[in-house]
Amino acid sequence: MSAKSSQQEGPIAGFSNCHAGILSRFERLKRLPQLLADPADLPAARQFADGMVRFVRDAVFEHHAEEEEALFPAVARSAAPGDERQLVDSLIARLTREHRELEALWAGLEPAMKNFARGKTADIDTKAVDRLCRSYAEHAHFEERVWLPLSERILKPNDQAALGLTLHLRHALDKVVAHI
């Protein structure tokens, strides 16, 4: 296995894969207004809304938590003192602020999405849907262009292995707790 292919399988690639999955789901969310416009599509729209509510809570918010609780601290610990550490700190502050902004955008949509999914009348703000989708895409693309390459450069192989183990244990613990 080449060094490049092993990097593609490491924890940084996992974050990138998460972005791809999230972006794919948000691309589908952008089509929700079209589904809402056609009464024949309402059952599919309700089912999609229900899945989206669970997806954002289970996948998007969890992805933000993993970045903030595992990736960001690992990169900050491994960054060289001085300019590199200042850059890392400023990027972490930006990305964390963007996470809260994205979560706030979702919080504005979630009640209507839940009501709609349950078959109740709900006015889903299609402009807010578009704003959320656009904002998430901008956020993920910035992480892909700037943050993840920087993280991969800063994190040495042992640091990446430790990060991978941390993420593995986090997921394993989630499964154990869910089982109990």
Rank of each mutant, 00 (worst) to 15 (best):
K114N: 14
P73A: 02
K175Y: 06
A59R: 11
A59F: 07
K156G: 13
F72D: 08
A122N: 09
V129I: 15
A122Q: 08
I92K: 11
A172Y: 09
P111Q: 04
L163A: 09
R77S: 10
L87W: 10
K175S: 14
A79M: 04
A79Y: 04
L91P: 00
V177T: 12
L150D: 04
L95I: 06
P111C: 05
C133K: 00
E98P: 00
V129R: 05
E101L: 02
V177N: 07
F142I: 00
L87G: 13
K114M: 13
R94N: 10
R131N: 09
A178C: 05
M113Y: 12
V56E: 06
V177D: 08
D174V: 11
I124W: 06
S78R: 08
D159C: 07
P111A: 00
L87Y: 10
H141T: 13
E66V: 06
K175T: 11
A140G: 04
K127E: 15
E62M: 07
A137I: 08
R97G: 12
E144K: 05
L167M: 11
D58S: 12
L109H: 01
C133R: 05
L87T: 11
T96Y: 05
L169P: 02
R97Q: 12
A70L: 15
L109V: 01
S135W: 05
L105N: 01
